[in-house]
Amino acid sequence: MLRFPKETCSDPVVCFLAKDFNLTFAIQHASIFPRKEGLMVLELSGTKSNFKKGVEFLKSRGVKVQNAAQEIIRIIENCTHCGACTAVCPTGALWIKRPEMSVEFEQEKCSACELCVLTCPTRAMKVNPKDENFF
């Protein structure tokens, strides 16, 4: 998630990520207005060192960089193993182990779509912001 200060909002910035740092990006969301703070959510990929340099570049231009990624965690003591969540989980991260009929959660398979959060009757699934120190 990039926050552009209102002074530099109209300057070209993200194009340099591709041009100078060989990073590819996909813009998920952007709201940029003249003379107002701008916000852009983008998915950025490339090599680790280029990624770091690219982020440094953004910061040097006054852009605030935050990790938009979040993960879903299970508060195990709230889980009653009912199984209601498995109706909505699109990736199979929440699944029923048979014959025990216990609900298993594999975070590696989770796409953080959050559908389980409000479907879980006992609120065992929570959105957890990932470590922001990543950058």
């Binding site: 009653t80 193993h81 048979r98 009929m101």
Partner: peptide, 23 residues
């Protein structure tokens, strides 16, 4: 129902429990 899917009208449909067998 507990097997995880049921074939209905030629399609496999996911079955979802709401009652906890563990408990």
């Amino acid at each position: 129902l507990k097997s995880g899917s049921i074939r209905l009208n030629g399609e496999d449909i996911q079955t979802v429990p709401l009652s906890s067998m563990v408990k």
